[in-house]
Write a protein that binds this DNA or RNA. Structure first.
Lengths: 194, 194
DNA sequence: AAGTAAACGGAGGAATATCCTCCGATTATG
DNA sequence: CATAATCGGAGGATATTCCTCCGTTTACTT
């Protein structure tokens, strides 16, 4: 494979992730090619059918996040720290794109990755709970849910780097909440709301 | 105004909010009319130009949430409780639609509402901070940011009522985090991530 | 109960957005 | 320098969304 070809391919994947996050759904193919600075023909050569680009993008983000996470679980002894670092890292990797794309892809061809991700987060949660520093009613699915809350830019009219730093800040607040074993002042039953 | 006309008008607004949340952006007009069970002509009669439906929908949600919030601040003495109840209530009112639509509407014609909302949340935050039960580095904008994280269904393939109840649960976690004055175990500086 | 103005519904053509093929021009590599 | 691989983007095909128009139906008045 020629060097320029490989470079273009990767660039297309990166741009795809970017745009998926911005748009909150499948971006127009033309838009991906344009932002990547390549012709449309190039995009279609690398990713011929409807979804192969999105597949590739998802796979890319997932692989990067999972292997970094697996490293973290080895090197960071404190469970909550590991979880915290994992979530911040995944956020920066664009993990939100995976959540957006997952329901749109017809034949997700990575049962392996899905399983690895689930296992990874289960271990993290388990360990942190055993260490007594995390609420004990949390599961891997809660972590996914929480992560997705902060993993996408939700248009509020902010410049994107400010949005990013706010997301990190609030993700930390959220994690503090997951650690709070005895949630401060009593929470009253709220009539008719939940 | 004839009774059926008013009913249809309100129904269109409600459906619009629903669809904005589902789609995460401007829904197709045809889709709104169809789900509302009225003809397209009816939609265009009530909301002739491009954005008047979206304006009306935003205004509706905002007004409902703000006046309920203003009542809460009178009746609930504890600052954090008031904030908590306000956020859960706004979430159920579809406040997420406001965040989605705000950047899309060209000439937001409700400077009044925006100001009222900001003032409302500032009071809530201020009071809770003064009472010593909320972090003291939070502003009204943080609350908006946090609220929007939980206020929209982010497609993860869940049935919508399960998604809703998860959102409420995790909003509570998040709020616990906003209360945590001394966030448990020391947070290490994370190298190269933020 | 009948008259009537107001409201309704939806077919269908216009406008727009997106897709994706095709082929001549360009460039990396031996 | 040759040449095979790669690139770029014009443009026709398709799909989606918009929104007018007018014949039909319905709520309200007297």
């Amino acid at each position: 494979m020629r060097a320029d070809a490989r470079k273009n391919r990767q660039r297309l994947i990166d741009v795809a992730v970017e745009l998926v996050l911005e748009v909150g759904g499948e971006p127009a193919r033309d838009a991906v090619a344009e932002r990547a600075g390549v012709g449309i023909g190039t995009l279609y050569r690398h990713f011929p059918d409807r979804q192969s680009l999105l597949h590739a993008a998802t796979r890319h983000v997932l692989e990067k996040s999972i292997s970094a996470g697996e490293a973290l679980i080895e090197t960071v002894p404190d469970g909550v720290d590991a979880l915290r670092q994992y979530m911040h890292m995944a956020l920066d990797n664009g993990i939100g794109a995976v959540n957006i794309l997952h329901p749109l892809l017809e034949k997700p061809d990575w049962p392996d990755l899905r399983a690895r991700a689930a296992m990874l987060m289960e271990s993290m949660v388990d360990r942190a709970v055993r260490q007594g520093s995390l609420r004990n009613d949390l599961s891997e699915r809660d972590i996914v849910f929480g992560l997705t809350r902060f993993a996408r830019p939700l248009a509020v009219g902010l410049p994107s780097d400010e949005e990013r730093s706010l997301a990190h800040r609030h993700l930390d607040f959220y994690l503090d909440g997951l650690c709070a074993q005895d949630p401060g002042p009593a929470q009253p039953a709220i009539s008719g709301i939940r």
